[in-house]
């Protein structure tokens, strides 16, 4: 993190909280996120995120919209509304990579690095301050527009299906998957795992070594009885 800049009190809290979020939660297993959701006060009534949340049957908690697909699943953050939060800086959002909609509007943000959104494969709608470009550039989005002093980035393009520029051909045993605006990842195909997805299935240790151990004991005994039992030690 860039600590050279001078931050206001709220920003330092924000950064610390985001920092905590990314270390206290593991990837894609987002427990409820009180920190990032309580990043700033105010309500999200009738904002874009609020409307999106109620339409997709989520529940609002602080600045977040939470939803679980099934009862056993932990709740995931699908919406994040940090509008009007006095943020100048967005550095690390790893804990909320399941998010579908983000609102950063009405913040003094200068610039957001593309890498912040690496891994945000579901992200499909962003509202940004007007001078901030959509992450990954305009080519990563279906539709980019300026509306009512906000920049809207709609519809994340799938980098795997791109023809021409930046098309990624994944190596054997792996499949290309969207990995955030402008990013793609090569994740191992079904049943494959490990470095370079070279491994497949679980080694049946019992099936292999059980009979091997048994036959070793049997053969040792058999040979001992028929051969070495009568041997004189030289």
């Amino acid at each position: 993190m860039n600590m050279n800049a001078v931050y206001s009190w709220a920003e330092i809290i924000a950064i610390v909280l985001l920092f905590n979020v990314c270390f206290s939660t593991s990837y894609r297993r987002t427990e409820t996120q009180p920190q990032v959701c309580a990043l700033c006060g105010g309500s999200v009534n009738n904002t874009a995120v609020d409307l999106f949340c109620s339409s997709s049957a989520g529940r609002i908690k602080g600045r977040c919209c939470l939803k679980n697909n099934s009862i056993s699943d932990p709740e995931r953050i699908i919406g994040l509304d940090l509008s009007n939060c006095s943020l100048t800086h967005v550095d690390n959002l790893q804990g909320v990579s399941t998010v579908v909609m983000i609102d950063f509007s009405i913040n003094p943000i200068v610039n957001i690095s593309d890498t912040v959104f690496e891994g945000f494969g579901d992200l499909n709608f962003m509202i940004l301050p007007p001078h901030v470009a959509c992450p990954g550039g305009n080519t990563s989005w279906e539709k980019v527009e300026l509306k009512e002093g906000k920049r809207l980035c709609e519809g994340q393009k799938n980098m795997c299906n791109q023809t021409g520029h930046l098309s990624v051909y994944c190596p054997e045993n792996s499949l290309c998957a969207p990995y955030g605006p402008g990013f793609s990842e090569c994740s191992c195909a079904e049943n494959f795992y490990g470095y370079k997805c070279l491994r497949q299935g679980d080694f049946p240790a019992l099936v292999v070594f059980g009979p091997l151990a048994a036959s070793t004991v049997v053969m040792s005994l058999l040979l001992w009885v028929t051969q070495r039992r009568k041997a004189k030690n030289q």
Binding site: S220, Q227, K230
Partner: peptide, 14 residues
Amino acid sequence: VVVFFGLLTSPKEV
């Protein structure tokens, strides 16, 4: 292991 328990190195051993 099997060799250890089963091998007669020379006919003299039996």
